[in-house]
Design a protein around this nucleic acid. Structure first.
Lengths: 143, 143
DNA sequence: TAGGGTTGTAATAGCTATGGTTACGACTAA
DNA sequence: TTAGTCGTAACCATAGCTATTACAACCCTA
């Protein structure tokens, strides 16, 4: 499984903006966030672009530009973030259609789809349990 | 998320062998399985190699060679298969260590790890609910 | 109105995982 | 001895993610 860190980076980014705003700042720049995440600002901007499409983040251009939250941390679950940045499923069926003249080849697709649907549902239920407010609390507790 | 079809192919392969054996044959060849899956025999042999390491499949060499199940279909869950072929986690932390001098950069790792552990546990619970016997039943029902 | 800082996005490159293919030695029943 | 299959290495193609450079678009401020 090619594990990816997009959810981690997205949660980090939104949590950072949330904390920064609570400390009195209006907007955060991709440069500042990238310094905390330890990556390139463009990576952050691209990710925030997806989060903006999902209505989780907003941006301001020109001088004094930057990013802000659209919803409060407590109103954003990790499921919201996940759905904003991960379009595809965790498991895939066959790349090439299996032999339809074989009993197994013919019936395995629907059988596995049913299982995968349940697995994805369980994964989403679990992600929905945690809000970014919870994440921030854990983060501050560790300090 | 780069969805992969390894679990699908593995379940297909083991189910195929199980059905083939119930029809009176001792072993199945990677060639036969590959025809049903619609892929190359080497792909099947590589996958079965992993499944053998996990004690789910066995092989016989020489003339009249081929693959057989070590356990009955009813004694193999999709979790067993998943663990045999997927070493890594679904979600990853940062590729590069985040800035430890930032509160968020310092605490985000443990916070997300706790969530990811719960998600993986839920995923495993879900996969453990289905045996290959269940899969075969679904497959035959669809015919 | 000019300057400067930041967004928004395209283009490119590197890395890793996966899948497909060819090749060939190892093995063993017949 | 032969034939059929495993076991595995080698190589290539594809896809997704990350990193980086570059630059136009934007808009506040002086």
């Amino acid at each position: 499984m090619s594990a990816n860190s997009r959810l981690t980076i997205a949660a980090h980014t939104l949590t950072w903006i949330g904390l920064y705003q609570r400390r009195g700042h209006e907007v955060a720049t991709s440069e500042q966030i990238a310094t905390s995440v330890n990556t390139n600002p463009v990576v952050i901007r691209r990710l925030l672009g997806d989060l903006r499409k999902a209505g989780l983040a907003g941006s301001r251009r020109g001088a004094g530009a930057g990013w802000m939250l659209v919803r409060d941390l407590a109103a954003i679950t990790l499921l919201d973030v996940y759905q904003a940045i991960e379009p595809g499923p965790v498991f895939a069926l066959h790349r090439a259609t299996p032999n339809p003249e074989c009993v197994v080849g013919h019936g395995i697709g629907p059988a596995m789809t049913a299982v995968y649907d349940d697995v994805e549902a369980a994964l989403r239920r679990e992600l929905a349990k945690t809000t970014l407010e919870d994440v921030l609390r854990d983060v501050l507790k560790a300090a």
